[in-house]
Amino acid sequence: MVTPREWHVTALADGRYRVEDGARVMTAHAVRDGGTAWIWLDGHLFEITPPASTRARAPHDDDALMPQMSAKVIRVLVAAGQTVASGDLLVVLEAMKMELPIRAPRAGVVKTLRCAEGDLVQPGTPVLDMQ
């Protein structure tokens, strides 16, 4: 493993930060938003949270079965108990006038359906559970 380089950071008065390692000097923009530090550095955006405030990562299924934004359910194509193949279209959401398909992340059985056509669904909650 390569030894990580050491970076020295200096806070500037206007919310910017000078970042240097002896060879390279960069300026970052950074702000704190609750427990998260947002950082803009060299064309990359970072969101940094301390380990204590980090929630356990959702299992992979949930990531695929969750809306990434508030959306309306326009079609539900499966029922509880139904066997689905990987990639099957399960639910169609609509947000910002775009259709957002939710597809089965793997083959399995639909355990519980958590939404109906016309519902508003929120990020962080899966539209259905699979087993």
Binding site: W7, H8, V9, A11, Y17, V19, D21, M26, A28, A30, V31, R32, G35, A37, I39, L41, D42, H44, F46, I48, P50
Partner: peptide, 10 residues
């Protein structure tokens, strides 16, 4: 480098 900034910001 970003994490170093984050540490200072936090």
């Amino acid at each position: 480098a970003a994490e170093a900034v984050g540490k200072l910001v936090q």
